[in-house]
Write a protein that binds this DNA or RNA. Sequence first.
DNA 1: GTCTATATGCTGATAGAC
DNA 2: GTCTATCAGCATATAGAC
Lengths: 206, 206
Amino acid sequence: METKEPMELRIREVAQELFFNQGFAATSTTQIAHEVGCTQALVHYYYRTKENLFRQIFLEQIEAALGVIGRSLHETESFETFISGAISMYFDALSSNPRLPYFVLEELVSNPDRRRYLRENFVKKPAYAIFYMQFDTLVKSEQKAGRLANVESFDILMSIASLTVFTFLSLPLYQDLLERTDTDVQNFLAHRKREITRLVLQGLRP
Amino acid sequence: METKEPMELRIREVAQELFFNQGFAATSTTQIAHEVGCTQALVHYYYRTKENLFRQIFLEQIEAALGVIGRSLHETESFETFISGAISMYFDALSSNPRLPYFVLEELVSNPDRRRYLRENFVKKPAYAIFYMQFDTLVKSEQKAGRLANVESFDILMSIASLTVFTFLSLPLYQDLLERTDTDVQNFLAHRKREITRLVLQGLRP
DNA sequence: GTCTATATGCTGATAGAC
DNA sequence: GTCTATCAGCATATAGAC
């Protein structure tokens, strides 16, 4: 009953995995074709250029990542549970996709065109301005009520991003430089999740 | 009176700048030679391989970075001033070298051989075990005296590294995605330095 | 839709003249 | 020490047979 996947899709799936693990520059269309089990010409038949193939995959990942951030903004009983819930969501999402942060960072840092594209097609969309305004309003009302330290909204987001994202960026270094097993890494992630939550919450107290 | 620099050194300086800004993979010996004003063969005459040339430069940068970390461990009047002084030193060192974190991260993440080399030649050296033990002893004595929250030494280092390093890793994104000027970036860095110091210190309070 | 064959260009590295 | 010339290899991309 198993329907054979069409080549177009298989190429895309294999390409995604390779781009993800090796980056754009280090992945060749020849390698993609080889792992798919077709000729290199077929990759170009479907996607014309390597850049084209990459862009489709890259945007899909960006959208998925932004989706997680969007869903983290939801009603809770208090600002503290809201923040700790958001951190927990980011950590869990990245734990099942630990190479995503480096993949996105690498391609955005090394290619200004991709930054421009992301800015014009995502950052400037009203949805993201609304997201930030909602968060900012929430922060200001909490501060007015005296339940929150006098910290800027942007700083809260930057600190949470720094602490969570860097954990995953440095994971290969943690594992190899300190010679840790996969189990060690899992324990480390769970441990950091708790400590980061504690640190951020303590930093938000008036 | 100006002595003409020997070619060997000029090649190295130009290579350093290019590797720094573009990474190892994206920099060719042809480009190095072109910017130096010599032939590509001369680059290989002096350094034999591109990897060889890179390694010398890379290790120099690693040593410089580790040197800053080493110098940050010094006597102060209190643990709080010690921590805020260290953060300040890291921030200032990176401000005059903002691409260093990405350069080091990229090469270590993308090349397991470099991680192995760094581990065997630096991480395993007694000097770094001593550095960590000194810090750990200091933390434990502060905790015994009730002046410090019950946080593991490694977590303190990880959180400081996350907050400072990620700031510089994400600088191109901050600038381009939010369309900030160079002056904006300078103000942003100064602002984050203060906020990160505040957050870490508050997180260390019992 | 999938293949073979090929064009074109760039890379790192070496041999050998001067 | 610096050059010219060249090699082999791999890349992306395309043309054309089937």
